[in-house]
Simulated assay, not measured.
Amino acid sequence: MAGTIHKLILTVGFLSMFHAAYSAAQHHSYLRLNELEFTRLPFDIILQAITSLFMIMYAVLNLAGEFKEIRASADLDNKSWETFRNVPSFYTFCHRGQSLLYQNPVST
């Protein structure tokens, strides 16, 4: 249920952001048609864009799930040192040390 609410907030936030962008483009073309100088956007468009941004950020942060810590050792705190040394991908059974066993000793 909570995920549905956050998805709805995200959708409303994006629609509101697109509306703010469209309103800004309309305001700019209005100024161009009336040959007025562009100084800044009206306050309501700026407020709508900022509110939409915060709505989107809130929804995305809640939909993203659990974050992991930045520290690389955070996942490794509960492991012992023996676990680090025991890595199956480093096991080698066919190595050149076996051939040393079967060589004839050098006679002098």
Rank of each mutant, 00 (worst) to 15 (best):
T83L: 02
E35P: 00
D75F: 02
I46L: 14
L101M: 10
S29E: 13
F90Q: 05
V12R: 05
S23H: 09
N104W: 10
L10F: 09
R40H: 15
I45T: 12
A64K: 10
L15V: 07
C94D: 13
S16P: 12
R71E: 14
L63A: 07
F67R: 06
S80R: 08
S99W: 06
Y30D: 12
A21D: 03
T108P: 03
Q26P: 00
M1R: 07
F84W: 12
F54L: 08
Q103A: 13
N86L: 08
Y102R: 02
H95F: 03
N78I: 04
T39V: 15
I70K: 04
I9P: 00
E35M: 07
K79N: 15
D77W: 01
R85I: 09
A74G: 06
I70R: 03
I45S: 07
F38Y: 15
M57T: 04
S16A: 15
A2E: 11
E35W: 06
L100K: 06
V60K: 11
L47Y: 05
E82R: 10
L100S: 12
I46K: 13
G3S: 14
I9H: 02
C94M: 09
K7E: 15
R40M: 12
F14P: 00
F93H: 05
A72N: 06
K79W: 13
A20G: 14
N86P: 00
L41A: 09
E82I: 11
R40D: 15
Q26K: 13
R40A: 15
F84K: 11
H28S: 15
Q48I: 01
M1D: 14
M17H: 13
N62R: 08
D77N: 07
C94E: 14
H95S: 08
T108I: 12
G13M: 01
L8R: 04
L101S: 12
M55I: 07
A74F: 06
I5F: 04
N78S: 14
M55S: 10
Y102H: 03
R96K: 05
S29F: 08
Y102S: 10
R71T: 09
N86F: 05
S73G: 01
L33N: 14
V87A: 09
I56D: 03
A74P: 00
A21M: 03
S89M: 03
Y22R: 09
L41M: 13
A72C: 03
H19C: 10
I70P: 00
A72T: 06
Y102K: 02
A21Q: 06
T4F: 02
N86Y: 06
H95T: 07
E82P: 00
E37R: 13
L36C: 08
F14A: 06
M57S: 09
Y102D: 07
I70F: 09
E37T: 15
T51K: 02
A59Y: 00
G65D: 00
T51F: 09
V60M: 09
G3L: 11
